[in-house]
Design a protein around this nucleic acid. Structure first.
Lengths: 349, 349
DNA sequence: CTGAAAGCGCTTACAG
DNA sequence: CTGAAAGCGCTTACAG
């Protein structure tokens, strides 16, 4: 007969209330307590009540590390976004956290700075934490990142763009976003409807979404027989007010006949509007100015900025909810959710 | 004699490369491998080399969950900030992550929305993850949060403000920030030097730092015998461009003799500047306008905004480095680090 | 300086 | 529906 060893003197107890404590108090096995807490399988009604009472009394909180180690899944959700200095992503992130936190998930934020290698590196680091879900921005990424995403088997939702996979696919790509192309087209059509004909497109950063908007601009102008490739200004630097001002001046210098400028982001357009004021330009009579995203302050400009309002909060919430469904194994009816956009016409066009 | 059970058939192996794999390949015990990897205690030079070679060959990455469970310390650093919609905190956070990530720490971000109860709740949740370190904003918080911070024994650094504890204390409060009071005083003195006498203070949000700046304004005006309590406008709403515009109009309506307005944050001041333009006010002749923080766009305004530049990147880096020292048990020479501020005089004053 | 044993606090995989 | 055993991948606490 093997004597069970006495309570070891080499204690490493953390002082924490454990599941075993809860089980003891509820007079059930740790397994039953574990199942009752997670609502897994059927557990006798009365036992569930006893477990819950014990949890209450002891103030038990599960240990995320122990849970992650045993189940190979943490309570983290990895979120990869390009920047936090663009208010767009801040709003998106807030909405994501507001949805995920009440469900018990901690957000792990990775800032990629629009750099594919940095994204891959961040993904690699975050995957070590075995996130329960992943949120990534857009569809363009390195082969390595794509591979990691496919191999890890972790549910993943793509933000910002619409990614359509065949509905028959049993392994679809999940996305919540809007058609950047259509939005760019809509803004250009608005400018055309205002009677503008020499419509420039001015962009910085040059991420995939920006280029999709540019394609919308191209298509609208082509359809109206107003397309002129020389009216496209692409600047690789990050977008900012100062750059918008600089681009306005450059465009007017190099193409004085331009009668409207469609900026790919509101910060550029705001900067251009401020520069126009300094230069004494009449907006929109001499040159109309349009932006994208409806960021803070755009409604305060003089004149107020015409822009495309992108529903960031809605997008973040929808993406987080979709991810929640995927993580719990629920059925996701639509793999590609379009949150739309809204043309906001103000005084600058 | 107890026969050791054969390799269990009930395998739960994750496919992951483990420390045991590394140890086997390096022909050492897992303990030696563990110590070699962490640089803990002395390990024979040759053994370290063998372990490192094995790590390389296998592409081993330690499992954060297992490490956290065994050591009662995760590789997370909890960061509690009020908002992400204020560029100030975005810059701060970027700098913190840039310093902490290379050292192997993951940042857990909690947004408190300037709400003490939300902060306490977030702290409670984050503490479950047993963070290796904590970064909090300012010194004002709930008793509960204060208690949690004291009890958990986790190194903690306070951002934004200067918190002076007796140098003799063997349990000092660590802080990296600047004197908000002094900065508010300096800006007010600048306005006085410009010949302004009826200087209003206009603030939103009303967090502790804002009120410290206000006290600086009060003291400067008192010293110059220009203090008038009716020139203080405090608005509880979050600060924004639109609110700045609204406050400017209100102030000029209720106190037409005001010749300068010191806004507690640049977004308010920017909004005021735009409103002044709409109203046809001459800035700074009729009314001078000053802000705080030197946020994006302030230099692009018409006229450009006079403000206080707060060194966010420097602050974030210094705080993260201090935390790194505390987490590794190194000696921290100065518990309270002043990163200073800079008066940036532009056209609006 | 090195290692065998035990344990961190959960869950998986079986068995009944 | 419930539970005893084993294990997740590390580190602590001892012992030598």
């Amino acid at each position: 007969m093997t004597a069970s060893s006495p309570r070891s003197t080499r204690s490493r107890a953390s002082g924490r209330v454990t599941l075993a404590d809860v089980a003891k108090l509820a007079n059930v096995s740790p397994m039953t307590a574990s199942r009752a807490l997670r609502g897994e399988r059927a557990v006798g009604e009365e036992l569930v009540a006893r477990v819950q009472a014990a949890v209450q009394e002891l103030g038990y909180m599960p240990d995320p590390a122990a849970r992650a180690l045993a189940s190979q899944r943490s309570s983290h959700v990895a979120v990869l976004i390009p920047l936090l200095s663009n208010a767009l992503f801040v709003d998106l992130l807030e909405a994501v956290q507001r949805t995920l936190r009440p469900a018990g998930y901690q957000t792990l934020i990775g800032i990629t700075h629009y750099d594919a290698r940095e994204e891959e590196q961040l993904l690699r680091e975050q995957l070590l934490h075995r996130p329960a879900g992943i949120l990534v921005t857009g569809t363009e990424r390195s082969e390595g990142a794509r591979h990691l995403l496919a191999q890890c088997g972790t549910p993943c939702v793509h933000l910002m763009e619409l990614i359509d996979t065949a509905p028959s696919s049993n392994n679809p790509i999940y996305s919540v976003g809007l058609s950047q192309h259509e939005a760019g087209l809509a803004m250009t059509q608005h400018l055309l409807a205002r009677g503008k004909r020499r419509i420039a497109f001015a962009a910085a950063q040059l991420d995939p979404r920006t280029l999709q908007r540019r394609d919308g601009w191209t298509d609208a102008l082509r359809a109206a027989h107003c397309y002129d490739a020389r009216l496209e200004w692409l600047h690789p630097a990050p977008s900012s007010l100062a750059l918008g001002a600089q681009m306005l001046e450059q465009i007017l210098r190099e193409a004085p006949a331009v009668d409207a400028i469609f900026f790919c982001n509101d910060d550029l357009a705001q900067g251009a509007l401020l520069a126009a004021m300094r230069l004494g330009l009449r907006v929109p009579e001499q040159v109309a100015i349009a932006g994208f995203n409806d960021l803070t302050g755009s409604d305060q400009m003089c004149p107020p900025l015409t822009t495309i309002r992108t529903p960031r909060a809605k997008m973040g919430q929808a993406a987080a909810q979709m991810l929640l469904q995927l993580m719990t194994g629920a059925v996701v009816s639509k793999a590609c959710v379009d949150v739309g956009y809204e043309l906001v016409v103000r005084g600058s066009t």
